[in-house]
Design a protein around this nucleic acid. Structure first.
Lengths: 286, 286
DNA sequence: GACATTCTCTGACTTTAGTCAGACAACTGC
DNA sequence: GCAGTTGTCTGACTAAAGTCAGAGAATGTC
């Protein structure tokens, strides 16, 4: 059944979903405001937001967005301020009335979600929540965006910081990254602009590339992101002309070791003097 | 975590969904036709459809639907014929060009679904399919429609036929329903108009009501529909003034027996001469 | 400091989506 | 056979959603 065609299940679910829960969005209606305006108001959120960011998140034409915002300002729901950091940009903030209206939207959405969950018995409810949690994780994982980044770019720095922090947490004696070393080509996976996986390839010699700083965000474990990143880095190494990749790792990172083994990596002798490394791997690239 | 608030997971998923899978619907865009028209064309489907049915499925204003259909006929994609069974109704059928256009929509949707599933490794893909399958079942179950029906109404007859057919399949010596007996108040649960669960209450005396013909559609087992129907029937019995419900069942229906026990039913002595019954239950209604 | 680019905003549009009232034919129940 | 209902269609609307070109200020780049 699951063999048949995953797309069938997805499309069937899509149908069910748009018919029954799609109403979650339309619940924004009935507030006296059109859907688009409500959606915008909700997206601004209690903490405010930049106009630029809104345009990207909602994928709106700039002129159209201006007009939608005007409706909200006319209703006294939001205020527009220039961005102190960049005079061209503007920042939207909810007024007191806007916060009330926002809360109302939030309540409606919550109420609608409840009507969907309520008819189910506790056991079914748990199953539904678990299923949606898994689906959420995997759909997000599937739509993650992998791209090469200079390791000096902010996203890359943030990803690397996560990586180092995790090593520091997991190694019995902590971890000291030492001087930042930016040699190599790096790849970051982002979801909604947030880095969720990271890794790079550094050339050791003509044949050999070393895979560095493989990291997957805690909340994204178990979605296959690690293997996907690993495959991506292997492809990258191939493109860089390498015929073999190596990597080192610490003995405490058991899942990582298991993943390398699953991916066809073989244990080899120590090839570097990394004081934190306790296992070394290699794989031939075909 | 799942303890916290099921609605959080649902709402989070809803967000992920509208952003990433919601695009499945918009895959109908870019065909040179507006979304509404494409959606209608797709809904007509290769086998055609009644105008009435389309109106209900898509929840459209009748005047609006007529105009949308006119666009499709003008483009030569569908033909309208009067329904031979009812001169007021009309039936929509795809023309050859319409079938081509329909297939194009289907391909687009399929392609988009594939891009969503493809980045995942086989193991993750299976997990996603399983999760969506579960979610689909439970969302449908949660939005099932329970209502009282005269046992002579077509939906009720269909549900009862399913019930008798199942008994005939499961009892070692088959089952003969005998003369149709329509005494009692019956409840049918429907999803998209299809009966998925059925049951009724027949008064035995002032205090006691008997629960009859409890049935849940094969594909809907495990969604908690049985218990929900049972609770519904108990409420109904209470409303009818009963203080106690009884029921009989065959020993082969193990899940049913387990469910009755879970719901607080106690074994009692034989109270009727039903030749197929092998176990008798009772429960006091508070 | 010149030139290109980015960001917001305005004006002038079009299309899409949807509503409401009523006409008219076909059917249903009694 | 007649009253009431149902199903489709027309006409006359309105609001929502979205597009496109360009103006003008602020910023980045060399």
């Amino acid at each position: 059944m699951s063999e048949a065609a995953p797309t069938d299940t997805l499309r069937r679910f899509n149908r069910t979903y748009t018919q029954r829960i799609g109403a979650l969005d339309e619940s924004f209606l009935g507030t006296g405001r059109p859907l688009g305006v409500s959606r915008l108001l909700f997206e601004v959120g209690p903490d405010g937001s930049g106009v630029r960011a809104l345009r990207e998140r909602l994928d709106l034409d700039s002129g159209y967005l201006t007009r939608l915002l005007r409706r909200l300002t006319d209703e006294g729901l939001v205020d527009l301020h220039p961005d102190p950091a960049d005079g061209r940009r503007r920042v939207v903030v909810l007024t007191a009335a806007g916060r009330t209206a926002w809360r109302e939207l939030d309540d409606r959405s919550e109420a609608l979600a409840r009507t969907l969950v309520e008819p189910l018995a506790p056991r079914q409810r748990e199953r539904l929540v678990a299923a949606l949690h898994t689906a959420d994780l995997l759909v997000r994982a599937a739509t993650v965006h992998l791209r090469e980044v200079p390791p000096t770019e902010p996203v890359a720095r943030r990803a690397a910081a996560h990586y180092f922090a995790e090593l520091d947490r997991r190694f019995p004696d902590g971890f000291d990254p030492g001087e930042p070393d930016h040699a190599g080509t790096f790849v970051v996976a982002t979801s909604d602009g947030v880095p969720v996986a990271y890794g790079g390839v550094r050339p050791i010699d003509r044949e050999t590339g070393e895979i560095k700083r493989m990291w997957v965000h805690d909340e994204w474990r178990g979605a296959g992101l690690g293997s996907r990143m690993l495959r991506h880095l292997e492809d990258l190494a191939r493109r860089l002309g390498h015929t073999r990749v190596v990597l080192d790792t610490n003995g405490t990172l058991l899942e990582a070791i298991a993943m390398y083994e699953r991916a066809g990596y073989a244990h080899i002798e120590r090839y570097n003097d990394n004081p934190y490394a306790q296992a070394w791997f290699a794989k031939a690239l075909s």
